[in-house]
Structures are given as structure tokens and as C-alpha cells.
Nucleic acid binder design. Structure first.
Length: 328
DNA sequence: CTAGGATCCTGTCAGC
DNA sequence: TGCTGACAGGATCCTA
């Protein structure tokens, strides 16, 4: 599930291919018009002049006064295929790793050179599949390649708007600051405002803090040794400070490693971004020992979301734990 | 105003 | 083996 670090990875990786490139044509899945909100003619013929990111939203600014806001939601992907490396020219080795979060795929160009391809977002075999396919919602045809917006569950979208109206877009306008720009006092005040919500629910609210999703909310709370169900209004300022510090640190580490989902220039040896495997301390690790104390991690549900935590490190004295299960 | 549940959607997987 | 239902979750919408 693409969160802030994954979108940042996309922003950084995609620029190399589409910055200053002209969109020749846009093809939208006729069965999923809501994946592309706007008119194809509003972007066709225009060139990309900048790539920006606000929270989990990617902003592709064009030189004709329009901007495309891309939100991947849960299963969105952006995949670039250079025109000289269409699949017919590639040997795909379907040697998938059994770890579902990290696809260990190998792609070789016949000449053995670096494949001009970039794939990021929700990890799936689409990264190496022939495209477009059944999950392709929008295809942007550039002069030197194609950018595919794939989305299994159709929750993501590309929205065309005037560049000078981006800040008035509903999502952008209500988006909170990112962790690095936020002060402890600001976050503490917001916790007070949502005093009766579990802290995890508050962290997932993009109007409170931008960019955290299920993975980094769990990781930040583990960093701060705060139970996900702890009521936000009962946190001390010190605990809020630790949560904010944790959010910055786990996302910095993830961006550094290329995002939690696979994001890579696919080389002959198939290098992948593998934050989950290398850095995640609690997410998807239920039943495994806590890296700090050795106690087995638990998985429960908080704010309607699967939630991972250490029952020993993240217990809170004035708070009675809700029911939780160890479903390893 | 906040809190919490339903909703969207499809691929995957456990259980029968 | 094949079917069924639960589940996954970001953001929005609705109700209380």
C-alpha cells in the first residue's frame, strides 16, 4: 500500500523518464472512467514540467497550465516502459520469491543492458507483465515510452485540474503538514482535539498529519512504545514527541531504501526496494519475536485496520488492553 | 465539531 | 478440486 515514502520514491524515480517529455496520447480504460477525472484533451500535447508530492499525492505539472493529481490509494502502480524495451525485446524470468511483499523478479534485455523501466507502487507481477493488461486504467503515451497507471481495486485516480487551483483541491486543501514540518506542540494539540480516538486512528487522519498509512503508523507507535489503542488525549507531550520522531525516522529510512514496496530500475539481477524485510519492526510480524524484548508480537484491529504491536514494549499503565489475538 | 461504521473494489486465501 | 465468504485498506460519506 503506497504511503508517503513510496510516492516520494515514485516522484524521484519517474522524473528521469517523463520530465520535459511530451504526452502524445492518453488512453483510459472504458470500463473505469473514474480512474481519469478530466478530459484526455486537457493533457494531450503538453509536456511535463515538474513533479511534486503532497502527502501521498503525486502532482504532475504540465506546461499548459494543467496539473495531474495522482493518488494510488491501496493498489495503484505507476510503471514506465521505454519504447525500446517493450516486452517482446525482454526476457522475463518468472522466478518469483514466495515473499509476497518483495517480488524477486529478474528481467534481462537481450543485450544484457540496463532495462529502461521503472515500476513502483503496490507490488505485483504487473511490474514485469506485458502491459497494458486488465488492471491498466490509464496509459500515457509519450514520445519515448509509455507510462501505465495500473490499479487492481479501482480506488486510485488521476485528476486533471488547473495548476493554479491545485491548492484549492479538497484533498490538498485539507491536508496537514508532513512529519518533518510539524512541531510537537502542533501534533499534541491535534491529539487533544481528537482526545477520545485511539492514537492510531489519529495518525491515519491526513488532516492531522500527512503521509502516514497503516505501515508507518504501526512502526511509529512501536518506535515511541505507545499502544495503538491508547487514547490520543491521554498522551503526554513527551510521548507525542517520540511518535513524531518515529514517524520521521521510519519514513526517512524507507525513502532511503526505495520505499516499502518494490521500486527499482529492474536490472538483470532484479534489485528491489525491500523496506518491509529489512526495516519493519512490527508490521506483518505478528507471532514473531519483538526485536527489543523478544516477546511475541500481536496483531489486532484498531480503527478498523490490522494493527501490529508488541504487548510488552507498547503497554500503557493507565490503560486496559483491549482484546487482541495472536494469529500467527 | 468529533467518533465510528459503511462504502468502494477485486484478488487472495482459509475452510469446508 | 472447487466453491464461498472473509479479508486487505485510503479516503470519503453518512449517522449519531
Amino acid at each position: 500500500m503506497p504511503e508517503l515514502p513510496e510516492v516520494e520514491t515514485i516522484k524521484r524515480g519517474l522524473g528521469k523518464f517523463i520530465l520535459h517529455a511530451k504526452i502524445v496520447k492518453v488512453e483510459v480504460d472504458p470500463n473505469c472512467k473514474k480512474s481519469f477525472l478530466g478530459e484526455e484533451s486537457q493533457v494531450e500535447g503538453a509536456s511535463v514540467c515538474s513533479l511534486r508530492r503532497r502527502g501521498k499525492a503525486l502532482l504532475i505539472e504540465l506546461d499548459n497550465g494543467m496539473t495531474m493529481l495522482v493518488h494510488l490509494r491501496m493498489t495503484g502502480q505507476l510503471i514506465w516502459r521505454g519504447s525500446e524495451c517493450q516486452l517482446g525485446n525482454m526476457v522475463v524470468n518468472k522466478d518469483f520469491n514466495d515473499n509476497r511483499n518483495v517480488l524477486n523478479t529478474k528481467i534481462k534485455l537481450q543485450d544484457g543492458d540496463l532495462v529502461e523501466q521503472f515500476a513502483a507502487g503496490h507490488p505485483s507481477k504487473n511490474f514485469v507483465a506485458p502491459l497494458p493488461n486488465a488492471q491498466t486504467r490509464v496509459t500515457f503515451v509519450f514520445e519515448r515510452g509509455k507510462l501505465f497507471f495500473n490499479d487492481q481495486r479501482k480506488f486510485g485516480f488521476v485528476k486533471v485540474m488547473f495548476t493554479d487551483e491545485v491548492e484549492r483541491d479538497n484533498f490538498i486543501a485539507t491536508l496537514a503538514k508532513e512529519p518533518w514540518e510539524m512541531t510537537v506542540d502542533e501534533l499534541y494539540k491535534k491529539c487533544q482535539r481528537h482526545a477520545k480516538s485511539p492514537i492510531k486512528a489519529v495518525l491515519l487522519d491526513q488532516k492531522v498529519i500527512a503521509g502516514l498509512g497503516n505501515i508507518y503508523a504501526d512502526e511509529s507507535l512501536f518506535y515511541a512504545s505507545v499502544h495503538p489503542s491508547f487514547l490520543a488525549g491521554r498522551l503526554s507531550k513527551e510521548q507525542v514527541a517520540l511518535i513524531l520522531e518515529g514517524a520521521c525516522k521510519v519514513m526517512d529510512a524507507s525513502i532511503e531504501s526505495g520505499g516499502s514496496t518494490m521500486a527499482t530500475y529492474l536490472k538483470p539481477d532484479g534489485t528491489t526496494g525491500d523496506y518491509l524485510e529489512r526495516f519493519a519492526q512490527v508490521f506483518h510480524r505478528q507471532g514473531k519475536p519483538c526485536v527489543r524484548c523478544g516477546q511475541l508480537l500481536l496483531k489486532t484491529k484498531v480503527a478498523g485496520r490490522g494493527t501490529h504491536f508488541c504487548p510488552n514494549c507498547q503497554k500503557t499503565s493507565d490503560f486496559v488492553l483491549g482484546e487482541s489475538e495472536n494469529d500467527s
